[in-house]
Write a protein that binds this DNA or RNA. Structure first.
Length: 215
DNA sequence: GGCACGATTGCT
DNA sequence: GCAATCGTGCCT
């Protein structure tokens, strides 16, 4: 079964549904350097404007404008002056909601770590110049892989939103509970899981290098 | 024009 | 535990 690029209709739905169903899909960046592909293993839903953790809760600005448009576009912003983070806009016009892509499992063309929202953007060369890109186009998109299997899902509270009062308690983070690439998994556990996945030697002897070297 | 702060990461 | 580092939003 061939991979299928997700269409506008996929994104134009309830944000929690999109956040959940994105787990296991492949994020693809196509440019002059070739094609980079990662499997989405962790997401967070941001349900503005009521959700005080969502950027769109503080009104419509030049930066957040794309979230007020139709679903299926990218929203990329800079955090802490250093890191770009990529979201997919969900729902419909005037419903400013989005899903943050928090972690990827490297599939192909990826040479840096992807177990965090800033890291995955660095690894795939995504920055805020790519905010507003149509995800049904030819540069940046998400597809259902030919070998897609529904992952075992877990959910938890979102990371880094303690300031958002009651909204911080919402279990709006979704992740593949079997993936060692989820952002909150420790580096040690990630290495351990990788070694096991690669069917390699016991913990204290050197095994083959993982596809994406870890720090 | 100034200023406080953050949907993070990496090193101690 | 905490520094790095700067755009954004909001104030004057």
């Amino acid at each position: 079964m061939p991979a299928t690029k997700l269409a506008r209709e996929f994104y134009a739905r309830a944000t929690l549904t999109v956040a959940r169903e994105l787990i296991g899909m492949h994020l693809v960046h196509q440019n002059s350097h070739g094609r980079q592909v990662g499997r989405i293993v962790e997401t967070e839903a941001y349900q503005g404007p009521k959700d005080l953790a969502a950027h769109s809760s503080r009104g419509r600005t030049e930066r957040t404008e794309v979230m007020f448009g139709p679903g299926g576009f990218s929203y990329v912003y800079l955090i802490y002056g250093m890191w770009d983070c990529m979201n997919v806009v969900t729902a419909t016009v005037d419903v400013p909601q989005a899903v943050l892509i928090r972690a990827l499992e490297p599939i192909s063309g990826i040479t840096r770590t992807t177990h965090g929202p800033g890291l995955l953007c660095r690894a795939l060369g995504i920055d805020r110049r790519m905010s507003g890109v149509d995800l049904t186009g030819q540069v940046l998109w998400i597809e259902r892989p030919g070998d897609y299997r529904p992952p075992r899902l877990a959910r938890a509270t979102r990371i880094g939103v303690d300031y958002a009062g009651a909204w911080a308690a919402k279990p709006w983070r979704f992740f593949d509970q079997d993936s060692p690439y989820v952002s909150t998994v420790s580096a040690a556990r990630r290495r351990q899981a990788l070694a096991k996945a690669l069917n390699s030697a016991p913990p204290h002897s050197p095994g083959p290098l993982p596809p994406a070297p870890l720090p």
